[in-house]
Computed example of a mutant assay.
Amino acid sequence: MKKSVFRVAALGGGHGLSATLAALRIIAAEHLTAIVTVADDGGSSGRIRQDMDVLPPGDLRMALAALCDDTEWGRTWAQVMQHRFRSRDGVTGSLDDHAMGNLLIVALWELIGDPVDGLRWAGALLGARGQVLPMSRQPLTMSGLVHPPVHERTEPGEEDGAPVRIGSQVELAKAGRMGRLSDVEIHPAQAQACVEAVSAIELSDWVVFGPGSWYTSVLPHLLLEDMRTALYETEAKRCIVMNLIAETDETAGMSPADHLRVLHHYAPQIRIDRVLADPESVKQSEREEFQEVAAQIGAQVVYQEVRSTDRPDVHDPLRLAMALHEVFNS
């Protein structure tokens, strides 16, 4: 018998998680929890966390905006949250490039004293469907090794191809153009996962990973020990939504199958039930390998057209909602 209402936890960050939330808002409504990475150290978020020692608010803001209803109220507040300040010509102001939503979220954190409660108040103001939670109440950082191509030298006197450790999420997000990433870590290693996020995973019917920046938005959830344990022990089924474009500044040279291998490498005990991919995102020559790797992690591949007709590099919310609804009922 098909179930009409599902409890869903969506994990990720940035534009990828926003795409999933815009779709899940249609089919999961009030039973939806967004669990967001908190390792961003660039742009407005990076400046805020450096100045104020708080969680980076940017990805949390984007998740809240994605959960706003498609009404005049919801659309207006989504635009307000995403609005970025620009000084007049010839002036460099302290508010330049800060998003209004980032400032609102941090103000609520300062007044209320807890990031989770602050996000609940922000969600109530926006009329957001579902809830947004940080993966940890503690600001995190990321690092990883970049292995340059063997024919490229690093510094004079150093061995060709010697790996270089990068300690910034922003730098990791473009490290694929420098070489192959490995040994990606979260710091502090023993940081605690947000208890409300762990509970949401435990109580969900489905957990959805991706799409998004593979190493810096999707993978972090598997690197935090408490989160990884919850994802392993939950009775929820697990679904991966693949990116529409496999090769980005972060994943240059990687095939769709390689994306699955990365997640399995860092959390081999976690089994996946479904992998959702747009047919055009996996070439015919790659499909056999892709499906074999999916089967190795316990997953069945589902091909559904989910890209926008106007912007083929962006997921269409309605198409993705219909595809996820079919996955959840399969």
Rank of each mutant, 00 (worst) to 15 (best):
G157C: 10
V5A: 10
L11H: 07
L320E: 08
V54E: 05
V306N: 05
L181H: 03
D96Q: 11
P279S: 01
A230T: 01
M142F: 08
T216N: 02
V327A: 02
R86S: 15
E286W: 12
D114I: 15
D316L: 06
E288C: 11
M178K: 02
S18H: 10
W206T: 10
R75P: 04
S281H: 12
R177W: 08
Y215W: 09
D313R: 14
D97H: 11
D70F: 14
P163D: 14
Q284I: 15
S281P: 10
H98G: 03
L324Q: 02
S281E: 08
T37E: 00
D69R: 12
H259L: 07
Y215A: 10
R238G: 08
I240F: 01
L60Q: 00
R319Y: 07
E280I: 03
A23P: 00
E233L: 15
V218K: 02
V54A: 13
A175I: 05
Q190T: 04
Q192G: 11
W109D: 14
E30F: 07
G161E: 09
K174C: 13
L244Q: 01
K283V: 07
D59C: 08
R120Q: 12
Q169L: 04
H259T: 06
P256S: 01
L140E: 06
H265K: 03
S18T: 10
V195C: 04
N243G: 05
F6I: 03
M242P: 15
V116L: 01
V36R: 00
L103R: 00
L133R: 02
W73P: 03
R153C: 13
A66S: 06
L263Q: 00
D59P: 15
G144P: 00
V116I: 05
E247V: 10
A321Y: 00
G130L: 14
K174A: 15
P317D: 14
E292L: 09
K2D: 03
G113S: 09
I35S: 03
A197E: 13
V262Y: 02
G74L: 00
T33V: 04
E155Y: 11
A252D: 02
A19W: 01
G161T: 03
M254W: 12
A257P: 07
Y232T: 10
T216A: 10
L104S: 04
A78V: 06
A122Q: 09
A197N: 08
D183Q: 03
V132L: 01
L95K: 02
P139S: 03
L276Y: 04
Y266C: 13
S217C: 11
L263W: 08
P115T: 00
K174V: 14
G118H: 04
A128M: 06
A294N: 00
S182L: 08
T76V: 11
I245K: 04
L324V: 00
S45F: 02
W121I: 12
L260E: 07
G113V: 05
P156E: 05
L133N: 13
I240M: 09
A295C: 11
H98K: 13
Q304H: 11
H259M: 09
V306R: 05
